[in-house]
Write a protein that binds this DNA or RNA. Structure first.
Lengths: 176, 176
DNA sequence: ACAATTTTATTTATTGATAAATAAATGAAG
DNA sequence: CTTCATTTATTTATCAATAAATAAAATTGT
């Protein structure tokens, strides 16, 4: 965020932004409410004025990330044979603009907190159905299988980003 | 483990087995050394007699899991056009026999502990190179790309298992 | 003066880790 | 054999640190 936007953003938004960055890189457990507060420049208990628990904060960040992904995918328009490719481009654009949120979204399923698990399940299910429906509507054969492959692609990109192993990315040129 | 094997297994092995199950389902942070100890039936400080820290225990379990995967993949023998398929079968067999270890292996990259991150990086890199080399030696074209796709397949299966969303699995039949 | 914002002070619970004590097994000497 | 000594296996007790959450006070703006 630019300085101007930083000022314009409400405290709640600032907290969610810092939380997204920290949750994405440090995960749910290693990210403390004190870290989030410090990143924003407020005191730790103040975080609880906006979110009744650390878990609720995490879920709020996750939901916002999902909505952004959903909007981005919904905005893609292309003929059937280009659809998957264009959705891939949309995913990459999102990864550049909202890296934290995307990495969090693709990673959340490993957080064993029951409420987060359940939410992750719902979220991944929603993503799958969105993608599948888009493929199906466009007349792509085997839309379910295609959607599954598409998401697996997102997963390996995430893994490659987190571990800094570019050769794992499907975009990496396969020489020799 | 059967009762007989349970007795035969050394304390250290028992601790690693319980730790594998707990780390796979509860993750690094939510799994306490007390939980591991309780699952084995020993006291919490005794775990530290075998592993100098919880982190070392995690890494030991991870290494054992990697070695099992490596052996399984190395044992696969097939002509080029069947190789990927047969390696997929080997992965599935392993997932049935050593579910905990496999899920842990595919999940470990999200644990933000620096030493674990570094180890995950190394481990995933080793898996990738193993698979790529196998494809290349067999004469499969684009072995790097194929290896990347193969691993992404493992990731989506893991996601589907953890969240209990069978429709996300590549093996799920794509009806309608 | 009122309402919204933000801080200080504090509590409670959890958990990884250490140290010292005890019990059990093993083996050698009488 | 069986007693004693020595090592190995395991427990009890405890510490120190961390972190989420609550409540009440204080500050700021209108």
């Amino acid at each position: 965020m630019s300085p101007k936007e930083e000022i314009a953003a409400s405290r709640k938004d600032q907290i969610m932004n810092s939380a997204a960055a920290l949750f994405a890189s440090q995960g749910f457990y290693k990210t403390t409410t004190a870290h989030v507060a410090e990143a924003v420049g407020v005191t730790q208990p103040y975080v609880f004025h906006f979110f009744k628990s650390k878990e609720q904060l995490y879920l709020a960040v996750l939901e916002r990330a999902y909505e952004r992904l959903h909007r981005a995918f919904s905005a893609v328009d292309a003929p059937p044979e280009e659809l998957a490719h264009k959705m891939g481009l949309a995913f990459n654009t999102l990864l550049e603009s909202y890296r934290n949120e995307i990495l969090l979204l693709m990673q959340c399923f490993t957080t064993p907190e029951p409420a987060i698990r359940e939410y992750s399940r719902r979220t991944h299910s929603r993503i799958y159905n969105t993608v599948k429906t888009r493929f199906k509507t466009a007349g792509v054969p085997k839309p379910g299988t295609e959607a599954s492959i598409f998401i697996s692609c997102g997963l390996i990109i995430t893994l490659s980003e987190i571990l800094e192993l570019p050769e794992l990315s499907p975009w990496h040129e396969d020489l020799d």
